[in-house]
């Protein structure tokens, strides 16, 4: 029986929520992610930075009506990491398969 190691970057509630949300859309604004994940701006900001450092998401900063705007998008590396994470989860849930 072989248990695959769970990616520590993704194996955290908020980071996993962000990646799962970004996987389903093309790109999303910071405020949208904050609303859907029910998180605080400070906490979300820290977790987004970690995902960005790992190369799992792309973060673009723009201005809209003189207000800063942060847009997040999942990268191919992030998609791969998510797929591997799900496979690892499956190995824990169905160890004999």
């Amino acid at each position: 029986m072989e248990f695959k190691e769970l990616d520590p970057i993704l194996h955290a509630p908020l980071r996993l929520a962000v990646i799962s949300l970004l996987l389903s859309v093309k790109e999303a604004e910071f405020t949208f992610i904050k609303e859907k994940t029910n998180s605080t701006a400070g906490n979300l900001s820290v977790q987004i930075s970690k995902l960005k450092e790992a190369g799992y998401i792309e973060v673009t900063k723009q201005f809209k009506d003189n207000y800063p705007l942060t847009i997040c998008k999942i990268t191919p590396k992030g998609v791969d990491a998510f797929e591997n994470y799900v496979k690892a989860l499956q190995s824990y849930m169905h160890p004999n398969s």
Binding site: H11, A12, P13, R15, S20, T37, V46
Partner: peptide
């Protein structure tokens, strides 16, 4: 809170909820 250990069920619940 952000680094707490999640069970497999909790992970799956977060993924399906967000999707």
């Amino acid at each position: 809170e952000n680094e707490k250990q999640m069970t497999e069920a909790e992970s799956l619940s977060i993924i399906s909820g967000m999707i």
